[in-house]
Amino acid sequence: MGKTFNPKITAFLCKWCSYTGADLAGTSRLQYPTAIIPIKVMCSSRVDPVFLIRAFLKGADGVLIGGCHPGDCHYESGNYHTRRRFAILQSIFDSLNLEKDRLRLSWISASEGPKFARVCNEFTDKIQKMGPNPTRKNMFI
């Protein structure tokens, strides 16, 4: 790693909405940062909070979950469960004074390519300002 900080952001994207939205961003030739490392999941509710914790502790500078808008879930209610679990995880991070801003949940539909690009840009900018995740370096965990 050179002196400049290149963030790494793990993005769990739901196959039906956010991942397709990312595809649309690509085919529309919208620019978004290379920091995003997408992982395709069948539904955002497939993402156990443990996955986020794992990514966080293994040095991801940011972790993003992308799912369908509430009410639009391909499996009817998956994203509502995701939302609850995300709230629980945020509360835990909050109570422990961990950096909960490194976690983000976004609703991006299949037709929202521009929104996907915008979310990625915003989030990367924010992480860039926060600096590298302390778990990346000197942490014995």
Partner: peptide
């Protein structure tokens, strides 16, 4: 990346994970 590693690994991960569950 880190230059050092704690063993056994993942003890903190276990507690955080259990909290979320």
């Amino acid at each position: 990346q880190k230059g050092a590693l704690r063993l056994p690994p993942d003890t903190l991960f276990f507690h955080l994970g259990r909290m979320s569950h």
